[in-house]
């Protein structure tokens, strides 16, 4: 094999890569926070007594979980403008990520809520707590603690999935890699580096979320 690896030509493109990593992190941060927010609201709706609401949220979850993220992204970015909703690239990317994570988070958090012992809810009610108070103070905390590892994995999957946002020209990490390889014609080196950066981001994100989970739901994980 005569191929000689040459990573030196990548040095000139450091700012592009830094920008790419920053955008990926930014997308994940916004998408993650809003997506988990939707997940909590969706899970609350799915455990509510309102049948049409439960059905609507259930349809949303199934629709999103059974279609590819790329198609959701294209639908939002290319399809919605014909309905009069025209979003800039990065807003379309964030919206797609939020909608996608929201569906998975709904399902994950609901599993945690379902695992709440009935006696705790009854104990809350007998203390005169209202429904929302029971949800906020009794159900949600332990539920989040229980499902936090699953939610962490899902947030990482969404972060990795954001690589396809390069297809609508969001300047995140894989967009940066595509840009660089179109200039220096060293696709293997560039994609190798980008992949390593994604791996590092995934490891770092897992570490941060584990710390965050310890801090927020300490004691909650123990049932």
């Amino acid at each position: 094999m005569a191929y000689r690896f040459d990573f030196s030509s990548l040095a000139d493109y450091t700012p592009v890569l830094v920008q790419g990593v920053a955008t990926t992190v930014g997308l994940t941060l916004i998408g993650g926070v809003l997506g988990v927010g939707i997940g909590i609201a969706g899970a609350a709706a799915r455990s509510s007594g309102n049948a049409p609401l439960r059905f609507a949220v259930g349809s949303y979850v199934e629709l999103i979980r059974n279609t590819p993220f790329l198609v959701q992204l294209f639908f939002i970015f290319f399809g919605l403008p014909s309905m009069g909703v025209r979003l800039p690239e990065w807003q379309a990317a964030v919206l797609a990520m939020v909608i996608n994570l929201g569906a998975y988070a709904t399902e994950i958090i609901r599993a945690g809520i379902d695992a709440t012992p009935k006696g705790q809810i009854e104990a809350g009610a007998s203390l005169g707590m209202t429904g929302p108070q029971i949800f906020r103070y009794i159900i949600l905390g332990p539920a989040m603690g229980k499902i936090w590892p699953a939610l962490t994995s899902q947030i990482i999957i969404v972060m990795l999935g954001s690589s396809v946002c390069s297809q609508i020209a969001v300047d995140e990490l894989s967009f940066a890699a595509n840009f660089i390889q179109s200039r220096n014609f060293r696709p293997f080196e560039v994609y190798f580096l980008a992949t390593a950066l994604y791996l590092a981001l995934a490891v770092a994100l897992r570490w941060v979320l584990a710390r965050l989970g310890d801090r927020m739901f300490r004691g909650g994980a123990r049932v």
Binding site: L160, G161, S163, A177, F188, A194, T195, A202, V203
Partner: peptide
């Protein structure tokens, strides 16, 4: 870890560009 910690898109690109090198 490697396959679960990196995007499928990057795996595709690497296979697509790396196989011809061999």
């Amino acid at each position: 870890e490697l396959f679960q910690g990196t995007p499928l898109l990057m795996q595709l690109f690497i296979v697509f560009f790396a196989l011809p090198l061999t």
